[in-house]
């Protein structure tokens, strides 16, 4: 399947059931004048593990930021658990966020709080639970991610793998129905990475969560995914089971899976524009989110 075809065929809908945990329709996104996501269509079923893959600069992290409501799309809709988050007001968005968990690449634990306090923060903010119950809840979540006894540790005292597991514990603190992972295996050794993969599958099986994982780790993706979405240059080029993706005739997908370097011919005009610094979108692409 070629990229050109991918623009017109909504892959996700091919298998879409009437009920969906995530439904993305006609999503376009720009950073300044540069378009970074093109007409994305994707449906993710309840209790499914969907892995979003792509090379560097493919737009997978930007797509994730739109899915979790950190960026507003230029056009299109993003339905999470039946609600279009692009149309929600602040209070409704707040309610929606309580039903969603996010585990960031670096953990993003609050460095001034202990691990247990990090897990208790969403509970403290969104529930009326007393302190003792929150302590029990925090210990339960730490048990789930195999970090029992580390509640009093500060994030700076944890290893990379432990940080990611602690981030998962915080993400599932309010028992969300939908859980997002950003590069869960990045920077981890194979053993720790495998343990994290197992944790993701276990969470889905035990808690019936819908899980969306953004990663470029091929081995990990094929191990945990029910379905895989491949992004390339801001476009979805394939959605299918691991087997379907593995057998895709698309050369760019095969290049990604087999670690072949990009052999796209250089566009001389584009190259000259980059050299002259006229590519205005780049500055915006490197921006950080404001408070």
């Amino acid at each position: 399947m070629t990229i050109e075809h991918a623009q017109t065929i909504p892959f996700g809908d091919a298998h879409a059931p009437s009920e969906s945990a995530v439904a993305v329709r006609g999503l376009n996104a720009h950073f300044g004048a540069t378009q970074v996501l093109y007409d994305l269509e994707l449906t993710i079923r309840p209790s499914e593990i969907m892995v979003i893959m792509g090379g560097s600069g493919s737009g997978k992290s930007t797509f994730l930021r739109h899915l979790i409501g950190l960026e507003q799309p230029s056009s299109g809709t993003i339905e999470l658990l039946g609600k279009d988050i692009t149309q929600l007001g602040p209070v409704e968005m707040l309610d929606q966020r309580r039903r969603i968990g996010v585990a960031f690449q670096g953990g993003a634990l609050f460095s001034s709080l202990s691990v247990a306090e990090n897990i208790k923060l969403p509970l403290r903010e969104h529930t009326q639970l007393d302190e003792k119950t929150m302590d029990i809840m925090a210990r339960m979540k730490l048990e789930v991610v195999n970090l029992a006894g580390f509640g009093d540790h500060m994030p700076s005292e944890l290893s990379g793998g432990m940080l990611k597991r602690a981030a998962v514990a915080r993400a599932i603190a309010t028992d969300p129905k939908l859980l997002f992972f950003d590069e869960p295996s990045a920077g981890l050794d194979p053993v720790v990475s495998a343990a994290l993969d197992e944790l993701i599958v276990r969470l889905r099986d035990a808690m019936q969560m819908t899980i969306v994982v953004v990663t470029h780790e091929i081995h990990s993706a094929f191990k945990i995914a029910d379905r895989i979405t491949i992004l390339d240059q801001g476009r979805i080029v394939e959605v299918g089971t691991p087997e379907e993706v593995r057998n895709s005739p698309n050369q760019r997908i095969q290049g990604l899976l087999n670690r072949r370097p990009d052999e796209t011919p250089l566009d001389p005009e584009e190259y000259l524009r980059r050299l002259s610094g006229d590519d205005q979108g780049l500055d915006d692409r490197t921006r950080t989110r404001h408070v």
């Binding site: 969603i100 690449q105 001034s112 969403p122 903010e125």
Partner: peptide, 22 residues
């Protein structure tokens, strides 16, 4: 504090937890 939290995605985490960072 705010700049370190921004770089470490802690501000993003606040948004996703449903806590207004301001």
């Amino acid at each position: 504090r705010i700049s370190t939290m921004t770089i470490n995605q802690e501000v993003d985490a606040l948004h996703t937890i449903g806590i207004n960072p301001v």
